[in-house]
Nucleic acid binder design. Structure first.
Lengths: 348, 348
DNA sequence: AGTTAGCACTCGAGCTAATAGAGTGCTAAC
DNA sequence: GTTAGCACTCTATTAGCTCGAGTGCTAACT
């Protein structure tokens, strides 16, 4: 028995060949295929011996006796960690992305959806995009608008011109002028802060400052708080869910239905994406996935920033037989350039 | 040959039995099944004779010689037009809907998504919901907010507290006070009008009225116009796309992929739904569908109103073998009560 | 005239057996 | 250490077969 694991260069080459070929074709890869298609200068018999070792060490799997080998999750893991060559994003994709950048998109939700579409179009996988976490963006302007006698709308504009609104039910009626004064005071005190920076001491001092408006301020601060709570789970945009159906591994409708079900659980996806935050590129392969229904998928996520702060995540879902290097390069490129797109919204 | 089409009561009963059974089981229905399961007081041989007529007239189809009959699109059409019995919405569904009504939902997009989820949950089909057309809703409040030296944000609040926002690039800088005055003037002139009522003569008279602010007003009215243009295609919310995979008729992955593809084309769905506007309940069966990829589906849509005006549409997509009466009753109930939900957003 | 029992006929679903071929592991020679 | 050769294994495909559901037609019955 060969208990010592000695991954020499030739074994690496063979493993890479198996993974590449299997990602390309989806069919188990045999020793003859490798010796013919990939120039290793050795015969299929030698390769068979090497493959036997690779299988013993768990990097590849034989679906049945008379079939070739397919990579295991462990094999893919080694591949993405050490073996994979990063590739540049393709020129035409670059151009298409630039063109999108030139388009006039003035709503953040449209932009997010457009980004999701681009990712799924570029990768041929299902894409996910989470909108910027509002807590980490800075307050730019607040405005109170009278709706009727007892209710007021609070509009909050942040950093990248993300607009949220909130109806506040007032105990005390307030007229337009009062609301304008209040809006000004709020702006003076809070502008430039991120929403998560608005804490209890700050709120107390605000109440004192507001003097006669104290009681109204209460409701308003509640509303701000409510905004934070509600927006704790960011909006999730999906695109290209149909792409999963392209892959024979999703021919089993029962399993595939479960995946589609998961994709509709936006909270689940939100937590999945938020875990990836701050990590740059993160790759989850098959069984590594925490969500049971996703254990036959791989997920790649990439976080993106506004003003140097990580505020959201983009990602793709595909079969474990995923074109990791391609997907990584695309996600990495888009995540690095997403802040430009977001800034463009601000420019009006 | 029997060229005269004489649809007597017994034939109707048999046709109804075939459709009911096929909707239930998805299997072709034989004459013996009908004579045993549905009490018609005649033998299978008699039913065979009648079925032969029904087939000749195109209401049912025999997939192959030794199979039972399945309804044709024409058969379903007759069924939904004349034969179908409307059924009351189930009690537990009613309760669940009421409970949703009690929940605090203060954003229109959340509400729309919630409604879509309810519909797909109730019907087990894929649901579509289009957000209220902003053009037909009335202006409640407009507010200009300064962002930076050269740009201003226009917030428009309409009827059901639907909020839209728009960044305006100004040629002339404008300070907070000017913007407040302008906001007030705009509100006085335009409040209560629907957006589509804001036409050229009105705009002209506004410009005169605004006097010294004339040049600024231009940009603002452009922005309003832009809002109308952009929001011409309403937002579409989908839920339960995975439900399609429940039905054996969508086992063919190639066709199903096409349907999923169509479901991602929001513009297409928007036009599909908008065509249904003003029509109350509308049923599109199989081949009747204009979209090729949808010719194996049936679609039911129902329009909904705000303040007596039709502003949007809800609907379901399923196999032609759809539980029409159930789906119709659910859509009809929800569409009739949707305005209550929308009003609740207004109440804060 | 309408209904029904009886029966031959058709055709798909599902089972079995046979075959072809891809790929392996092992052995012996290089 | 490498490789040619070969027996062996297992799947996928095909062909042939049977079974049974369902039909249409005919002849008898009411």
């Amino acid at each position: 028995m060969d208990f010592e694991m000695n991954l020499d260069e030739r074994k690496i080459k063979i493993l890479k060949a198996i993974i590449k070929d299997y990602i390309l074709t989806g069919e188990p890869v045999g020793s003859r295929t490798i010796s013919k298609k990939y120039e290793l200068g050795v015969s299929s018999a030698t390769i068979r011996n090497e493959m036997s070792d690779l299988e013993e060490w768990g990097f590849i799997i034989q679906p049945h006796t008379s079939a070739g080998r397919i990579p295991s999750d462990k094999g893919y893991r080694l591949y993405v960690d050490k073996l994979m060559e990063y590739q540049a994003i393709e020129d035409d994709q670059l151009r298409l992305f630039e063109r999108t950048l030139e388009q006039k998109i003035d709503q953040i939700d449209e932009l997010m959806m457009e980004v999701a579409k681009l990712i799924s179009y570029f990768t041929n996988y299902t894409s996910m995009v989470s909108s910027p976490q509002i807590q980490k963006t800075k307050l730019k302007h607040m405005q109170l608008i009278p709706l009727d006698k007892r209710s007021v709308m609070l509009i909050i504009v942040t950093n990248a011109n993300i607009v949220t609104n909130n109806v506040i039910r007032m105990d005390v009626p307030a007229d337009q002028d009062t609301l304008n004064i209040l809006s000004n005071m709020l702006n003076e005190s809070l502008r430039g802060l991120t929403i998560e920076e608005i804490n209890l001491p700050l709120i107390q001092s605000l109440k004192l400052k507001m003097g006669i408006y104290g009681e109204i301020v209460n409701s308003i601060l509640d509303a701000i708080d409510h905004t934070i709570q509600r927006k704790n789970t960011p909006d999730i945009y999906l695109s290209g869910t149909k792409n999963l159906l392209n892959f024979p591994e999703f021919g089993d409708l029962v399993k595939t239905k479960q995946i589609f079900h998961t994709l509709e659980e936006k909270e689940l996806l939100a937590s999945l994406l938020s875990k990836a935050a701050n990590d740059g590129i993160k790759i989850i392969i098959g069984q590594e996935n925490e969500i049971d229904e996703m254990k036959h998928c791989s997920i790649i996520t990439a976080s993106y920033e506004i003003d140097g702060k990580t505020v959201g995540t983009i990602g793709v879902i595909g079969p474990t037989r995923m074109e990791y290097s391609k997907a990584v390069s695309i996600l990495s490129y888009i995540s690095r350039n997403l802040d430009k797109l977001l800034k463009k919204i601000s420019d009006g």
